[in-house]
Simulated assay, not measured.
Amino acid sequence: MAEQLGPTAARFTHADDALTVLDPYKRQSMSVVTGFGPTNAPTAGTLSVMLGIVELQRRLGAPMTVVISDLGAWNSRNVPWQTLLQVRDQMFAFLVAIGLNPDGAELRSHLDHANLVRAGRVARYLSRADFQEHRESLLELYADHGLLGSETGVVVDSLYTVADILGPFEGGAGDVLMVSGVEESYFTDLARLVLHRQAGAGDLSLGWQGGIGALYFRVLEGLAGYPKMSKSIPASSIHLNMAPAEITDRVMRDDEASQAPLLSAIELSSGWDATDITRAREAFADRLLRPGPWRQARREYCRSFTQFAETWQWCTR
């Protein structure tokens, strides 16, 4: 995979049949699908994925669909509608500002007639048991924090996203590469079920053919011991709506549970080159004997993340 993706490959921890669709002889008919939830300003974890998507677009040069899941998030999370719309539009502008080429990507939301129709058409191939078997691993965590919408809403959100993944087949693509966090792998599983079942449905088939591969980004661990840096759990993250003083306060805390996640944040969401990242790794490894260099690395990361935060704020204009 390193041959196809180059340095970008280091951003991924899991591949699921990705090499098949990345085969150079098949790449001409491949489309990439990815997306983001607009529940809040991007955390360092979301920023790491956004930077990875920009790198992937440059590396592959394949058609790409980037979905901001406004309607899906409305159904699956307890966030006001106007907040979702505001963050959605800001995300579109921010992705372009950090380097995504809009000429090579379709940027859309779930307020898309074709995708809503497609979601309605694929629903017949899935059962309630399918959604119970293939579900997000962090649902219980979100439920404990009062963040989830209704059970039906979570299913509806899944249908929209499955339709997102399958969209390129409707347009004639030969293969799809799904790119997401590993906690969202269940979307890929559900899309494959639909693709397989409709192919064997006779007169009820949609006529879609091809394969689905997946690449899963490295999950950015949450601060303070949380398993993931999540927009929905403020204590777990730093995000782009924070003021510089807030970013500094969170990054410069010395609690041991946050130190490894902060190194991961530097590796994935700083925008630094390989030399600077190597220097930060060395400072982290030696932090107990020589705390100064690690504190300096974190200060520099504060500046880098603050620059992204300033770009995010500029995208409200």
Rank of each mutant, 00 (worst) to 15 (best):
H239G: 06
A97K: 15
W81A: 14
R58H: 14
L148M: 13
V154R: 15
G181W: 02
S205H: 08
V67F: 02
S304Y: 03
L47Y: 05
V179M: 05
D249A: 15
R295D: 01
E300C: 06
M229K: 09
D23G: 04
L56H: 09
G35F: 00
L263G: 09
V33I: 13
G211C: 08
T39H: 07
T275Y: 08
G45S: 13
I233K: 02
S185C: 11
L166V: 01
H145P: 01
P63C: 12
D203A: 13
K26M: 10
V49E: 12
F284N: 05
E106L: 13
N101Q: 11
A297Y: 01
S48H: 10
P168V: 03
R192Q: 08
Y186A: 00
S150G: 14
D203L: 09
L220P: 04
G104T: 02
L84Q: 07
G61C: 12
A173R: 04
L193H: 00
D273A: 08
D189H: 06
A257H: 02
G104P: 00
S264E: 14
R108S: 09
A280K: 07
L268H: 15
F36S: 07
L263Y: 08
I68G: 05
G292V: 05
T46N: 15
G200E: 14
L95A: 10
D276E: 14
L22F: 09
V21W: 00
D23T: 08
D286M: 09
R290Y: 05
Q132W: 05
M242D: 01
G292N: 04
A265R: 03
